[in-house]
């Protein structure tokens, strides 16, 4: 085969692998997406860096209701009808997930450089 055929083949393979690589890498979750789970199932997700206007989002779980307050780079449980309201007292989501045990609700951001946190 001619030299230029090989050059083309190599170039195509390189281009494809580069594209695949870039796509795979950019698909990694961004650091500021908040995920809301009820009973371990994802029920809502929001990229906090793209929130312009603050808004309230109500999650109706089979066990009760939690109201999330979502603003730019910030999410908290503003209200809930659980007995002790410990989830509301946790304030804004920073490191540890927000948890409402009675309603089996968890709000978290994709974990960073640690695989898990002992607490």
């Amino acid at each position: 085969m001619k030299t230029w055929v090989w050059v083309v083949i190599v170039a195509v393979i390189l281009a494809v692998s580069l594209t695949v690589g870039v796509v795979l890498l950019t698909r990694q979750p961004q650091g500021n997406v908040a995920y809301v789970y009820v009973d371990g199932e994802l029920v809502y997700q929001v990229d906090l860096s793209k929130v312009d206007q603050p808004y309230l989002y109500t999650v109706n779980t089979p066990y009760g209701t939690n109201v999330l307050e979502i603003a730019k780079d910030s999410i908290r449980i503003a209200d809930a009808d659980c007995p002790h309201k410990e989830c509301v007292e946790q304030g804004r989501l920073k490191g540890s997930p927000l948890v409402c045990l009675p309603h089996r609700l968890v709000v978290k951001i994709a974990e960073d450089d640690a695989d898990s946190v002992s607490r």
Partner: peptide, 14 residues
């Protein structure tokens, strides 16, 4: 190895 963080007992981080 798995990287296991220990929560900062006073702050929010590790």
């Amino acid at each position: 190895p798995y990287r296991i963080a220990v929560k900062d007992p006073v702050g929010e981080g590790y």
